[in-house]
Design a protein around this nucleic acid. Structure first.
Lengths: 125, 125
DNA sequence: TTGCTCCTCACGTCACGTGAGGTGGC
DNA sequence: TTGCTCCTCACGTCACGTGAGGTGGC
């Protein structure tokens, strides 16, 4: 696969792919001229990277995870991340509720709305 | 309020508060010696900032939002963000499902698990 | 007087984006 | 031969964190 094929399949930029290669997350099978060539399964690796990034893993953490697979060690990291994800979903739902109310609110200034202020109090009690 | 009071109430670092001040998100009421002093309602502003950050607004966007309030203009931005938040919640739930399954999976290598690969296919179809 | 937290630069980090100038395949 | 995308630096961006060296209130 050429880099343009990978870009089309994933929507990732050349800079992103270069960056992942530099960090050792993906590899090339070689070059044709100066142009990088990739194995077909690079898309699977990129999908794992995307999935893990959404979960809040840093690229360095993802490198560790990929290296530890298929060992048992990464399961500890995974369990910790599930709790983090749940927390972040709760945060997002709280934020969405705050904005939704602010839109529906009839107060001239949201900062004077009791419902909105109640949401703020949850942020910094 | 002293900066240490603000730090205790919010858990934010001095560097963060300096950064917000530099961007014009918060202001001081003056100084005692070199030490910054804050009005009580700075905590409300910081709560709004935290809420908006969780929603995916950049600090520059938040500055615009705070400036436009209580005008009607910010409502357009808010509506767009609600859709984004919903998307990100879906992403997180997908990621959580992927990890949860990977933990429960009996396959020696997750990359060989059909259920996990089905999740990857959703990332880059 | 002794700590303590505060202060101001300045540079580092993370995950890339963005030109600047140049090479190679179709 | 003409474009086109690719290439390699190098520097920029965003939201801070982290010393380094110094000042001021309690």
């Amino acid at each position: 696969m050429d880099i343009s094929d990978v870009r089309k399949r994933t929507g990732l930029s050349a800079a992103t792919l270069h960056h992942y290669e530099e960090l050792g997350l993906i590899t090339t099978t070689g070059r044709v001229g100066l142009h990088r060539q990739y194995a077909d399964d690079v898309v699977d690796v990129l999908a794992v990277i995307a999935l893990c990034q959404r979960s809040g893993f840093s690229l360095h953490e993802i490198r560790e995870l990929l290296a530890k697979r298929p060992g048992a060690e990464w399961k500890g990291l995974a369990r910790a991340k599930i709790a983090e994800i749940t927390q972040r979903i709760n945060d997002l739902e709280q934020a969405r509720e705050g904005i939704t109310h602010a839109l529906a609110c009839t107060s001239p200034d949201i900062m004077r709305c009791h419902h909105f202020r109640a949401t703020l109090d949850e942020v910094y009690p």
